[in-house]
């Protein structure tokens, strides 16, 4: 894997000569940081063991400003292989890592030192880490709690949020929900971002899945474009510029973004039908639909059939 070496070096070296390392040499903190570094950053593909010899920029022989380090760790470097660790590390862990990285900056790249190996590594200070519930599984979205889907006491169906998540993000299906919708930063941009849809009632969410044309967000309504040569193209507006309009053609999955030159467009009509397929009510079982609603509602106890009908 690769990195944007120049960008990273540029950002890191911005502080050179301007700011000196200011993190006090807390040995315990540095050791914790070293352990975190070994686990998350020291792959040869990344910064290498002890911050040298990796594919990403070396972290020695330079003055590293704690503020810049903290920002880079938390935000990552968009456009490069450096990811954001903002959701992976707690604040105290980030402090530990910064302390370790600052301690590295005074070391020469040719000098070996004792970086804790996997075998001797101290576990992260889980006991001192207050993890907000939504953070603990952040790479896959908010934590919903243990699967609770089951047949309720009265024999009624109850949705399982985790099963709904699997259905939503199913990477084996060419047309799973994530192909068009984003949830918690992952997924397509054809339809609305559903991260905040939990504010709606379970019934509304259920209805919008099985009958998408009943209520359409006007930003995502279907456009019917007719061009000068008499051809028609339906789709959801992606974006437009002076030269062209781009539509998501949802007649095929994954949707295809098609660019239409403005000079070719004769007319654009807005349709009252949603571009979303209207057969989810039959494609999915009731249980699967409840799973999806439970996931989108972030419901711990699971949504029941009675709540949606």
């Amino acid at each position: 894997m690769g990195v944007s070496l120049l960008l990273t070096i540029c950002l890191l070296s911005k502080a050179r000569g301007e700011l000196q390392p200011q993190i006090p040499a807390d040995r315990g903190q540095t050791q914790e940081g070293a352990a975190l570094f070994a686990l998350n950053c020291a792959s040869t593909y990344c910064h290498g063991e002890g911050g040298k010899g990796g594919g990403a920029p070396g972290l020695r022989d330079r003055s590293l400003a704690p503020e810049d380090l903290r920002h880079l760790i938390l935000a990552g470097i968009p456009g490069t292989a450096m990811p954001s660790f903002g959701s992976r590390f707690s604040s105290s862990e980030t402090d530990d890592l910064v302390a370790y990285l600052v301690s590295l900056s005074s070391r020469q790249s040719g000098v070996n030192d004792a970086v804790p190996s996997a075998g001797t590594r101290q576990p992260p200070r889980e006991s001192t880490r207050a993890v907000p519930e939504a953070e603990s599984n952040s790479t896959a979205g908010p934590t919903i709690g243990p699967p609770t889907g089951r047949v309720g006491s009265g024999g009624a169906l109850v949705g399982e949020a985790e099963a709904g998540r699997s259905l939503f993000f199913d990477s084996a299906a060419i047309d799973s929900c994530r192909v068009c919708h984003t949830f918690e930063g992952r997924g397509g941009k054809v339809g609305p971002d559903l991260t905040q849809v939990r504010a709606k009632s379970a019934r509304e969410i259920f209805e919008s899945i099985i009958n998408p044309s009943a209520k359409i967000d006007s930003n995502y309504s279907t456009l019917n474009v007719t061009t000068r040569d008499g051809r028609r193209q339906a789709g959801v507006r992606r974006d437009e510029s002076e030269e062209r309009l781009r539509l998501f053609d949802t007649s095929t999955m994954p949707p295809v973004s098609r660019a239409i030159p403005r000079t070719e467009i004769l007319s654009i009509e807005r349709s009252l039908r949603s571009a979303m397929p209207d057969d989810f009510g039959t494609r999915f079982s009731e249980k699967q639909l409840l799973d999806l609603v439970s996931f989108l509602k972030a419901s711990r106890q699971g949504v029941t059939l009675e709540e949606v009908k």
């Binding site: 690769g2 968009p78 490069t80 292989a81 990811p83």
Partner: peptide, 9 residues
């Protein structure tokens, strides 16, 4: 502006 896996080549 997202994390890109691998090199930009």
């Amino acid at each position: 502006q997202i994390t890109i896996p691998n090199t930009p080549g």
